[in-house]
Amino acid sequence: MRHGLALLAFAATTCVFAQPAERPNQPVFRSGPWFVVRSVRDSGKVVGCTGFYRANRHVQLSKDTLIIKTVEEVSGVAFGFDGQAPGALRPLSSAEKELQAIAFTGEDFAKLSRSYKVRIDAATAQGTMRHELELTGLSGALENIDKGCPVPEAPKTPQRRRHRS
């Protein structure tokens, strides 16, 4: 309880005395199941834009890569775009193995950015795991990231009109 009161007191003082222009990790855009978070570091000098799928921190989007972190060790992966069956499994790259992730880069990322759905087959020791991502809204998220994930303007409150009597 004491800890909570200290945090509440700290929050109250920061609100009164030092209101930052923007939050360190601020959601700035949403399109379908995709949303973009703006991260600011080094006193606002470094801005990072990361897209996420359905608030899943394991699925992260940048301007030219989609990374899906895996819990299990994956030995191969295949993609099927727009209702097509996934092709032949390909081995994971050394970078994917190091990240423990499946990465869409290059031509795979180009196909992804033009598609409405992708099916992912991942070969693990337990068998083939199947995943699907809905890509509706992906192009909007990519466009927002490409523009530097600007902070949206605050909604303007309508002015009340005074009636003269």
Rank of each mutant, 00 (worst) to 15 (best):
S113H: 02
A85D: 09
S94T: 10
Q19K: 15
G127V: 01
P150K: 14
P33Y: 00
E153T: 03
R90L: 06
E73W: 08
A95P: 00
R54S: 13
G87D: 05
E107R: 08
L135N: 04
K45N: 12
F29D: 01
C49V: 11
H163R: 13
K111E: 14
P33N: 03
T65S: 09
T50V: 14
Y116T: 15
D82H: 09
R30D: 01
V47D: 00
I145F: 13
R160E: 09
Q100I: 06
V46C: 04
Q100G: 03
S139P: 02
T14A: 15
C149G: 07
G83F: 13
D82W: 06
Q84Y: 07
A88D: 10
Q126A: 07
V28W: 02
H163Y: 10
A110S: 13
A18T: 06
S165W: 10
P27Q: 07
A95I: 04
P91L: 13
H131K: 13
C15E: 06
L66W: 02
L135A: 13
G32L: 05
F109W: 11
D108T: 08
R164W: 09
L133M: 12
F35N: 05
D42S: 12
K117D: 15
S165K: 10
P150T: 13
N56Q: 10
Q60R: 15
L99Y: 05
I120A: 05
L142W: 07
Q159H: 04
E132I: 06
T70V: 14
E143R: 12
Q84N: 09
G137K: 07
R90I: 08
M1W: 12
C49E: 04
V28P: 01
A18F: 11
L133I: 15
F109G: 04
M1S: 10
T128W: 00
A21R: 11
M1P: 03
Q100W: 06
R119P: 00
L138Q: 01
E96N: 04
T124I: 04
G76P: 01
P152Y: 09
